Amino acid sequence: MSSENFRQLKPFFSILLIISTLFAIVFLQMEERRMGYSVLKLTREHKKVSEEKRVKEIALAKITRPQLLDHMAQQKFTLKKIQANQIIHLSGVVEAPVNKVAKKDL
């Protein structure tokens, strides 16, 4: 390639470089916009799931509150409230009292 041929092609290469740069800029802007929409969609979905979780936690707390469980046990299953003499205390091994004999008693 001679220097004369290269000079003739210089304007073509510069225009090609400018056009490719503009295409790259447009492509990057489109990708940025697309990613922004993806992030927006995921953010909305996250908020929706968080709200559903909060609602379910509140429903669980309402269902398992002690007063409701006690009421259901008495109404549905006809259970009665416990009385003091019905409570059985389970503790560790109970040792029988050992009669300690002193040496001088022998």
Rank of each mutant, 00 (worst) to 15 (best):
M1V: 00
M1K: 09
M1P: 00
S3E: 13
S3L: 13
S3M: 11
S3K: 11
S3T: 12
E4A: 13
E4D: 12
N5Q: 15
N5I: 15
N5E: 15
F6S: 12
F6K: 12
R7C: 12
R7N: 15
R7K: 15
R7I: 14
Q8G: 02
L9Y: 14
K10I: 12
F13M: 08
S14Q: 14
L16V: 00
L16D: 03
L16W: 02
L16E: 03
L17Q: 14
I18F: 12
S20W: 04
T21C: 11
T21I: 13
F23M: 03
A24V: 10
I25S: 05
V26T: 07
V26E: 01
V26N: 06
V26S: 07
F27Y: 12
F27M: 09
L28H: 01
Q29E: 00
Q29W: 04
M30I: 09
M30E: 08
R33Q: 01
R33P: 00
R33M: 03
R34A: 07
M35D: 04
M35I: 08
Y37R: 04
Y37H: 00
Y37G: 06
S38H: 07
S38F: 08
S38A: 09
S38T: 06
V39W: 03
V39L: 07
V39P: 05
V39H: 02
L40R: 02
L40P: 03
K41R: 06
T43R: 04
R44W: 10
R44V: 08
E45C: 03
H46F: 07
H46P: 04
K47W: 06
K47H: 05
K48I: 10
V49P: 05
S50W: 01
S50V: 02
K53Q: 14
K53V: 11
R54G: 00
V55M: 11
V55K: 08
K56T: 04
K56C: 00
K56Q: 09
K56N: 01
E57Y: 01
E57C: 00
I58S: 06
L60F: 05
L60W: 08
A61I: 05
I63L: 09
T64M: 10
R65I: 01
R65F: 05
P66E: 15
Q67Y: 13
Q67H: 11
L68Y: 12
L68T: 13
D70K: 04
D70Q: 03
D70C: 01
H71I: 07
H71K: 11
H71C: 09
M72L: 14
M72I: 12
A73F: 07
A73P: 04
K76V: 12
K76E: 14
K76R: 15
K76Q: 14
F77K: 06
T78E: 14
T78C: 00
T78Y: 11
L79K: 03
K80F: 11
I82E: 09
Q83G: 10
Q83S: 14
A84F: 07
N85Q: 09
Q86C: 06
I88P: 05
H89T: 11
H89F: 07
H89M: 12
G92I: 03
V93T: 02
V93A: 00
V93G: 04
V94Q: 08
V94A: 03
E95F: 13
A96Y: 06
A96N: 03
A96H: 11
P97W: 10
V98F: 07
N99Q: 13
N99K: 15
N99H: 11
N99L: 15
K100I: 13
V101H: 06
A102E: 11
A102I: 02
A102P: 04
K103W: 11
D105C: 12
L106C: 01
L106E: 13
